[in-house]
Design a protein around this nucleic acid. Sequence first.
DNA 1: ACTAGATATACTCTAGTTGAGCAATACCCT
DNA 2: AGGGTATTGCTCAACTAGAGTATATCTAGT
Lengths: 311, 311
Amino acid sequence: MSARVVIGLNAVVTALEGGDPHVLCVRREEGWGLPYGAFDPARHRTFELGMRDFVTGQTALQLGYVEQLYTFGDEGREAPLASFRGGEASDRVVSVGYLALSPVAGETGRSDAAWRGWYEHFPWEDRRPYARDGLEEAILPALRDWAGGDRARRARLDLAFGLTEPGWQEERALDRYELMYEAGLVPEAARDAGEAAEGLPGTGPAMTSDHRRILATAIGRLRGKLRYRPVIFELVAEEFTLTDLQDAVEAILGFCVHKQNFRRAIEASGLVEKTGAVAARTGGRPAALYRRAPGGPSGVGLTLPRLRREV
Amino acid sequence: MSARVVIGLNAVVTALEGGDPHVLCVRREEGWGLPYGAFDPARHRTFELGMRDFVTGQTALQLGYVEQLYTFGDEGREAPLASFRGGEASDRVVSVGYLALSPVAGETGRSDAAWRGWYEHFPWEDRRPYARDGLEEAILPALRDWAGGDRARRARLDLAFGLTEPGWQEERALDRYELMYEAGLVPEAARDAGEAAEGLPGTGPAMTSDHRRILATAIGRLRGKLRYRPVIFELVAEEFTLTDLQDAVEAILGFCVHKQNFRRAIEASGLVEKTGAVAARTGGRPAALYRRAPGGPSGVGLTLPRLRREV
DNA sequence: ACTAGATATACTCTAGTTGAGCAATACCCT
DNA sequence: AGGGTATTGCTCAACTAGAGTATATCTAGT
């Protein structure tokens, strides 16, 4: 009989909190990881139902928008999970990653669960001016070192980090992480090689197993999706000001957009309508409150007016 | 002990032949289906390796570009496959779909395998003027019937088939297929309900299991990818004329693009370079031959100059 | 009450992109 | 030589996206 296969479900549950995207994490001996549940075909008709079930079972959260990310089946990735629920050492653990969005980073209801900021684990993905990552100072030099005279490596580096033509593409988060992994900069690289886990400063703390890879996949996917699906509304409250919306977008994208043009695009898109009320805010002219337009287009994303010159 | 899980691998192997995209299919009692192989964790380190292995094992083809599509785990979908390799009736068959591209629709080396045109199974996806699908005449009226006064259904219909604002979006092939399935128009709908399998004329022949859904996923994914990754070169010969390239693009997209603007975009993209030679062609001015530019950008797709007015 | 500071909102300007079409060119065939 | 056919070069207008300027409306502080 062939080796058994166990299906694991990993959820990247994301919500905004304090102007930054956060992800629901669980504390294990080896460090922070994504919530994980084994898929039981006897109990669940679909992966998605199984995933919702184990997340709401383990935390007090209700999931809204959910989407499948990728299925990870590489040998070797299961080792850190072998101790889990019914998995035996000889089993192959295949994991189906899901992205789930929630408008609030609510109470998790577990002492070993917590919301962790995306950019704690991916400092280099936050290009907003106030966030100072060590990209230019530490990471890029190390990557250039690693690439050396190798043409292929150089091309991948240029593409992933936007050093040449199309520039920085926010959705290439996975490319960037994998490059850093290959170059041995992130602590996971040493850890998986069985060495003492020491990463380059500024590359963020490791997560268990390949969970940081899954999170990078989620970040890239969500960023890409913003452009052609109105997913951003899954992450904000019912009523919001255009600045709220812009802050949410910028938090996800990791860079700033042009304020006036952003508003112009949003208002022209037909995605939102004014509630009539205004926000009670501190300082400044009060902003009009908006909500999602009921009959608005669902097949349209946001135009994201990039800033070319640095602010 | 919980029910066992078997991982199946499904490959959508696509190549262009005679100006139309084709997919490698295998003949079974129930009809045409995608090549399928069980994943054996003892033998293969990754899904992709397993997939390459079973395809080259079952046919004489070498796969080039490969990408994971989606993992299908719904209960019920395995029934038609229960007879397969080691699968027992009580097992849950989960299938990981892959898309693979090949520049030539070569000999399959199997008598029960054949290349089938995408648009034989998806007539409505070919909007090129010479292809006459029954979309307007038969499918849309039936869908409108099905939607009736239901707002949500109506909105999905408008979006999927581009009846309102953003218009026809070629990458929504899966949305369209699923809508037609729900509306009971495709033969699979009746078949899966246990009734005699009769589909609306013009909805194409069924494929085994949910393989037409997997194919629709592949079509949508590939169409979307054209815009931001130079995948089209995986489908044409080493040397090609710009018209060859355009024909390939139009075949995948299922609609025509503006010739002069297409050339302008391609030439400006830096993706190709002239070989210096010209094509020996029938009739007309001979076209310059191009090849992919070696140092060209890899993170860039094609601008696809849509035709607004019908030709 | 008035002012400074802060934010929201309304417009304008400009360069680049995109959809569209015209016209010239280069080959084959009869 | 001339018709047929396809390639190639070029122009134009409409639209889009990035950027900047100006004005409106609030709070907080004096």
